[in-house]
Computed example of a mutant assay.
Amino acid sequence: MDLNHQINQLEADLLELGTLLEKSERKRVQELLKQEQKKVEKELIAKRQQKEQQTRSETDPSAASKAAYTVKITNYAWDQSEKFVKIYLTLKDVHKIPSENVEVTFTERSFSVLVKNLDGKNHQMTVLNLLYPIDEKDSYKKIKTDMLLVMCKKQTTKKWECLTKVEKQSKDKDKPSMDENADPSEGLMSVLKKIYAEGDDEMKRTINKAWTESQEKKLRGEDMMDF
């Protein structure tokens, strides 16, 4: 089975998994489908990159001898507009290499970057499990001075609170837990303690001042914590 056929099959699998996920109602089934979707996306990215390398070697037989070692891109920043999520990768002199050396591939829930032969190295980055689906056909790249901009087209116009589901799960774990049967004042104290622990000196002074004033009001019989 050649690479083109494998890629076509994986693309068809990914499309069908997306359809099944939309129709499924049970949470366990949805989680299983998402896991399989993630596996297929990774395999598809790998096959596409393999196909590109094969094409290069056929076009330039000496390419194999010129291959550079690959490093991962781990530092990035991201922003968003109503229609796009924008990922900024700082890569010195990226604008000086041939544009065909900068490859970005997209799937509905991921994107992969491969910058070849920049400063004697290949630079690679893969982001899986995006928070929301993107339109891979309308997503694209922009090469700027010392920077690569990855433009992920949102399928739905909505604000993303983070880039991936992994980040969201991490943030959710950091949130104070709220017991519906617990005393509301205990929940407030938990939030205040977290803010105090993570705040700077000015924030701590503000909380200390507010707490002192609230205690004084309590002694005078006034309402507590009205700051």
Rank of each mutant, 00 (worst) to 15 (best):
I45R: 06
A64Y: 03
Q35E: 15
L32G: 01
E52Y: 09
I45A: 12
V40M: 04
A64C: 06
Q30A: 13
A64F: 07
T55A: 11
E52N: 11
Q54E: 06
T59F: 12
Q35M: 09
T19S: 14
S24V: 05
R56F: 05
E31H: 11
K39T: 05
E36K: 13
T59H: 14
Y69T: 08
K42R: 15
Q54C: 00
G18R: 14
E41V: 03
P61I: 01
T59A: 14
K38G: 01
E41L: 02
P61L: 04
E36M: 12
K42N: 14
L20F: 06
A63K: 09
L20W: 06
E31A: 12
K27V: 08
I45M: 15
K27R: 13
P61N: 07
E36P: 00
S65E: 11
E36D: 07
R26Y: 12
D60Y: 10
D60C: 01
L44P: 04
D60Q: 06
P61H: 01
Q50T: 11
L21I: 04
Q50Y: 02
E25D: 10
Q35T: 10
S57G: 00
S62Q: 07
K34E: 15
L17K: 03
E58D: 10
K66R: 15
Q53C: 01
T19G: 09
E22M: 12
K66N: 10
V40A: 04
E16H: 13
L44A: 01
A46D: 12
K27I: 08
A67K: 13
E58I: 04
L17Y: 03
S62D: 07
L33I: 14
Q54K: 03
K38N: 06
L33S: 09
T59E: 12
E16Q: 12
A46W: 03
S62W: 02
K51W: 04
K27L: 15
L17G: 02
E52F: 09
L21A: 13
K47N: 04
L33V: 05
E36H: 11
E52D: 11
K51D: 10
R28T: 11
K27F: 05
E36A: 10
R28Q: 13
K51N: 09
K47H: 08
L44F: 04
S24W: 00
K23G: 01
D60F: 05
Q54H: 05
L20P: 00
V40T: 06
D60H: 08
T19L: 15
Q37D: 03
Q50N: 05
A64D: 09
A67L: 09
K47T: 01
E52H: 12
K47L: 11
A64V: 06
